[in-house]
Amino acid sequence: MPSANRRSNTRLAVAAAAVTLALVGGFFLWRFIAEAGMAQQPWFSGYADVTVDPPYDLAGTGMPDSRNVTLAFVVADSSQPCAPSWGNAYSLDAARDALNLEQRISELKSDGGAIAVSFGGSVNTELAVACQDPVQLQAAYRSVVERYSPSTIDFDIEGDALLNGPAGERRAEAVAALQKEKDGWGGGLDVWLTLPASPRGLTDDGIAVVDQMLAAGVDLAGVNIMTMNYGSSRGPSQSMLDAAVAAADSTHDQLSISYQRVGTNLSSQEIWSKMGLTPMIGVNDLPGEVFGLDAAGGLNSYALQKGIQRVSMWSLNRDRECTAAAADGQASHVCSGVQQEPGQFAKALAAGFEGKLR
């Protein structure tokens, strides 16, 4: 039989071990809860076109309380296909000097805001299309991430870039490697795809882009659909809001199948939490398509009801009334083309989406 001292020492050792386990377990439980809570917190981040004149005021009062901004668009420099640029108009250094971009970002972050960076867009050339060297492509993406330190990057893939399968493979491999690097640094990197959609959902080429990313091992934070510019895919009696809801419902089902193809079975709610919606506010690019404030409120309610993770809009630069009617009803880069107060679309779409970008 053990002595009293040995029994006492044993009790102390057991108690110490129990405390240690409790502390360690508590830490991991806290971390799990914190990370889960962060992941589940829906967020709004409107796009700001970096190259539009006048520059969007990142410190402006028209921004939602979350103060998240998605800066657009990083593309290939037409004279150096593996060099990133802002809109093929400014090198990263030129944007620092001419647009004071880094100082503006710093001030936004100091005021509690955060940024995401979006690559691609509807004009110019996405880096993976122009840069055919996988090592240089990864270096180009890395240079942007290291320079601006976003927690979230977004790939707006449309037009010719959407049809370019080899570019999609290069992009997916480079992003997977970069995400793995970032995880190794302890920072993590959320990756979103932004893709065109019709009321029938993603196109076959859009689904292929999702599949490429998943097959390459990219941990996709989500797929954000562009609920805009539907053309003939929108029925004659279908409103812009109805078309957006139909596009989201269809995309939800398509994403479930994409994840199943890589052996991941997600619940319906898990799929909704990996989706984003981005309307083009006011007058769209195609004739007869106008996304008004009532539609913005309706889309916000739908997104909250479904548990959608992200709402964005194109664009923050346009979130104000035009000083004069846009010629022939054409969409403007700097105003919405509808009657509104400054920042009114962002306020309507952001309601309830109070999460912060990491």
Rank of each mutant, 00 (worst) to 15 (best):
L108S: 04
D49A: 13
W314I: 06
S45A: 15
G159M: 09
A72E: 13
S256K: 07
V19L: 12
D183L: 14
I115C: 07
G307V: 00
V245Y: 05
L23R: 00
L202C: 07
L286K: 12
D190R: 12
D93H: 09
S233H: 07
D97T: 04
T51F: 03
D133F: 05
D242T: 01
T10R: 00
G187N: 13
G222N: 09
R310S: 11
A248L: 15
Q254S: 06
Q40R: 13
A36Y: 13
A130Y: 06
M38D: 15
M63F: 14
A172L: 08
G288E: 08
Q309R: 14
D294A: 11
A83F: 06
A246L: 11
A17N: 11
T264A: 10
N317K: 02
L127D: 07
G231R: 06
A72T: 15
M1T: 12
L266W: 07
V218A: 10
D77C: 08
G263S: 10
G217S: 10
A221T: 12
L277D: 12
A34K: 09
S232Y: 13
I308E: 00
Q309N: 15
F27H: 00
V245C: 08
A296G: 05
P84T: 03
G120F: 00
S312G: 10
A326N: 12
L266Y: 03
Q254D: 06
A59Y: 10
I33N: 12
F155M: 06
G26H: 04
F155L: 12
G187A: 15
L349E: 01
L202Q: 02
